[in-house]
Design a protein around this nucleic acid. Structure first.
Length: 772
DNA sequence: AGGTAGACTTGGAAAAATCTTT
DNA sequence: AAAGATTTTTCCAAGTCTACCT
């Protein structure tokens, strides 16, 4: 996507866009296949601009970008003006392979659906996160038996341990092999078929523009792969039928035909305040699933830019907010203190807000407001040590220096509480977010992550000032900045140590070879120089000319080799420094892309060096940023206007008088809340006890290990008793349920990290505000 | 006021595609 | 062209947050 200049390109885009709009009116006629009436229009729009485009002709014909950021805004809450599509795609039905399982020596060919699930299980049988995990196995077997075996009169399959999956595994492997060894023709044919499906189902027409969909295939039946210690991992996800699906289209758009014979869509709606194309309820966990436009579609870009603008806006409010929360955490009132401390954590440590979770239905993970006493430790310094599982059960471990006030506030929040008590028992994500909204409209906890990630990127990149980087150096520099952001946000990936060290070894080899080659090249250059000297001395013009050329060539080759060596050295360094850090998430979601575009222009590096094609497609609007664009800048420059925070009726004068009342009221309500909370806990505890006999101290860490030692059991220690599917009993002794969170050590071992970025915070307290 | 359904953003793993090396 | 390494895309789980309901 290189081009002459942003301005010229913008002009071109503007024309493209105008073309699209002008033709928009014709959309009701000249329909092509697929019921996409606008097809013709777009083609026209494309042609109109070819004059301008031809000049910058790229190899691939680029689809014109909808320059939505120059369009008149949609009315409040409206997401589209027109919406039409071809519905969703259902993956082909499972073709039974007929390979049996062997149960207790007996070959049993399973009915299709049972076979489908069984084959999937066999494929992950030895993966310790899945089939080798006792909870996963138990859930799988229980569901599978109940849903697929008992109705098929295969109730005699009662013990998962007696199942030999080898034939299914062999089939899967053969299948993989077959796929690998397909001929070119076969591969091409498949590719074409896939493309045709995408052509038809993978697109949507929004306001007359054709956009790509993100996902358009309805999820096939499979085994639920919940992360971490998800109680439902391994359970069967049922088939989704057209009847389960609601489609969203324009009022005047044709209803797409249902692709499955004999079925019909669950419902058709015309909801222009929603972005989704289709939705359904996933039956296992009850979560909503959606089909929507891809990240590169303008409808998605619009929201994206709004998000970054909102984060950028925060810079004009943050000083006041920081002053306020630092004051708040010294408050005598528990609620205020907790609001202050939680704000500090959200702001400085960039933690997520931490919604409440349902322990029976979900893995237990934590964020700011849900942190427990046992997750933190106050150390000399003062320092604060945090250790807990965050989103996706990713371990968060961090020890940071904290201001005295913060340590004191934390001390108070911990005081008199048990290890498994909540630190922030007087506040919730809702109250915290409404506190933020007192300072800036639309401010919520997640905005801080975006803000601090972007600030960090800009700050790190600014350090390149006056460095005059080569392109390769710039790439490394950018990646290191990106890394700081990823560390701040705790974006991690699990590494397979074995394959990692093998990769490093190979890289080392390559580096060695490249260095050797460089040495040889240098020698050759030397030789060439010598030859030239000789030729000069001999004074033969022809030989001299030849020698000159040879030297030129040798020099060029040497330079090239120097580049190769440098590249490998750089890759090597990045490979180790980003070993367990995932850079993608921050690029996709957190760092304002305008910072990247601006910096790339400044140092003369093509954005493509650090943004993959999907990112380029996602952020065309960021290209508008010139090299001097700054995320942090005076308000006059950004053009972001002050927005008055709409206060709830009360005048400031009145507020003062009601402050006292309010606080007591609050206290009361919290007390009440607390009481009900404990009550709830108790009641669920007893309930659980009666059914499963688990729970007691489920959040205490120590107990798990203790239980494990006492337990020491075989993971497959359960069998179905009779056809009553739910009745699982112990084969040996004890309570098998008690073993389930014990065998399940955390999926990913906590990673120690020596250093971690934190947001740079200026605690300037400004005193002009109207605090209580 | 608290609870929750619904919608949208964020997340890592795995699969697929592409690039490099042999 | 096969194999192997690396990058990109896909998949779908898991967060956040607002609006709506009682």
């Amino acid at each position: 996507m290189m081009r002459s200049g942003p301005r010229a390109r913008l002009e071109a885009l503007r024309k493209v866009w105008r073309g699209g709009r002008e033709e928009d009116g014709c959309k009701e006629d000249g329909c092509k296949e697929d019921g996409c009436k606008e097809d013709g229009c777009k083609e026209d729009a494309g042609e109109k601009t070819t004059g301008k485009k031809a000049a910058s002709k790229a190899k691939k014909e680029e689809i014109p970008i909808r320059e939505w950021w120059n369009e008149p805004p949609l009315k409040n809450g409206q997401k589209w003006r027109s919406l039409r599509h071809n519905g969703v795609y259902f993956a082909e039905e499972w073709k039974p392979h007929g390979e049996p399982i062997i149960y207790d020596g007996e070959e049993i060919v399973l009915p299709p659906l049972a076979e489908q699930y069984a084959t999937q299980f066999a494929q992950v049988k030895d993966n310790e996160n899945y089939g080798a995990n006792p909870v996963f196995r138990r859930n799988f077997f229980k569901d599978w038996r109940k849903q697929c075996l008992v109705p098929a009169k295969l109730g005699r399959i009662k013990d998962i341990k007696k199942i030999d999956w080898s034939r299914l595994i062999a089939w899967s492997e053969a299948e993989k092999e077959r796929k690998k060894s397909r001929s070119k023709e076969e591969k091409d044919a498949e590719k074409a078929k896939k493309a045709a499906i995408k052509e038809k189902y993978g697109h949507v027409w929004i306001d007359g523009f054709r956009e790509e969909l993100g996902n358009f295939t309805i999820e096939p039946p499979g085994l639920f792969r919940g992360r971490g210690e998800h109680p439902k991992r391994g359970s069967l996800k049922p088939i989704t039928w057209p009847e389960d699906i609601t489609l969203n289209i324009s009022r005047d758009a044709p209803v797409p035909p249902c692709p499955l014979e004999g079925h019909k869509w669950g419902a058709i709606v015309h909801n222009d305040s929603a972005m989704w194309i289709a939705n359904w309820r996933e039956k296992l966990c009850g979560q909503h699933k959606y089909v929507w436009a891809s990240a590169g579609a303008s409808i998605s870009q619009r929201g994206d830019m709004a998000k970054f603008d909102k984060a950028r806006e925060l810079q004009y409010y943050i000083d006041k907010l920081r002053g306020d929360y630092m004051r708040k955490l010294k408050s005598k009132d528990a609620t205020s203190r907790q609001l202050g401390l939680a704000s500090w954590i959200v702001d400085v440590l960039a933690l997520r807000v931490g919604m409440e979770k349902n322990a029976e239905e979900e893995a237990e993970t934590y964020g700011t407001c849900s942190l427990l006493v046992e997750h933190v430790e106050l150390l000399e310094g003062p320092k604060l040590k945090l250790e807990f599982l965050g989103k996706d059960s990713m371990p968060y471990t961090n020890t940071v220096d904290v201001p005295e006030e913060v340590a004191a506030a934390m001390g108070k929040c911990l005081k008199g509480k048990a290890a498994t008590d909540s630190i922030f028992d007087s506040i919730s994500p809702t109250t915290l977010n409404s506190y933020f909204k007192e300072f800036m409209p639309g401010l919520s906890a997640k905005v801080f992550r975006t803000y601090n990630a972007s600030v960090t990127l800009e700050r790190e990149l600014a350090k390149s000032e006056g460095l005059n980087l080569s392109i390769e150096e710039a790439r490394v520099f950018y990646t290191n900045a990106n890394r700081e952001v990823a560390i701040l946000c705790n974006h991690m990936r699990t590494v397979n140590e074995e394959s990692f060290s093998a990769q490093v070894d190979r890289m080392q080899e390559r580096l060695k070879a490249a260095r050797k080659a460089l040495k040889e090249r240098k020698n050759k250059t030397k030789d060439a120089r010598a030859t030239l000297k000789e030729a000069k001395a001999e004074g033969k013009p022809k030989a001299l000319e030849k020698a000159k050329k040879a030297l030129e060539r040798a020099k060029a080759l040497e330079t090239k080799q120097v580049g190769r060596v440098k590249k490998i050295e750089a890759d090597m360094e990045l490979k180790t420094s980003t070993k367990e850090i995932a850079l993608g998430t921050s690029k996709i979601n957190y760092m304002d892309p305008r910072i990247t575009y601006a910096w790339c222009k400044k140092v003369g590096m093509p954005v493509e060096k650090v943004f993959n094609p999907a990112l380029i497609k996602k952020f065309p609007w960021a290209d508008v940023a010139g090299e001097d664009w700054k995320f942090i800048c005076p308000r006059e420059v950004s053009g972001i206007k002050i927005k008055r925070v709409v206060k709830k009726k009360k005048s400031t004068a009145k507020k003062k008088s009601t402050a006292k009342k309010k606080s007591t009221a609050k206290k009361k309500s919290t007390a009440k809340k607390k009481a009900t909370a404990t009550k709830k806990k108790k009641s669920t505890a007893t309930k659980k006890k009666s059914t499963k006999k688990k729970v007691t101290g489920k959040r205490k860490r120590g107990s798990a290990t203790a239980k494990k030692a006492a337990d020491g059991d075989d993971e497959d220690d359960f069998v179905a008793s009779g056809d009553d599917d739910d009745a699982f009993t112990r084969r040996k002794d004890g309570d098998f349920v008690a073993s389930d969170d014990d065998d399940d050590l955390p999926l990913r071992s906590p990673v120690k990290r020596s250093r971690r970025s934190r947001a740079v915070v200026n605690y300037a307290v400004d005193d002009n505000d109207d605090d209580e």
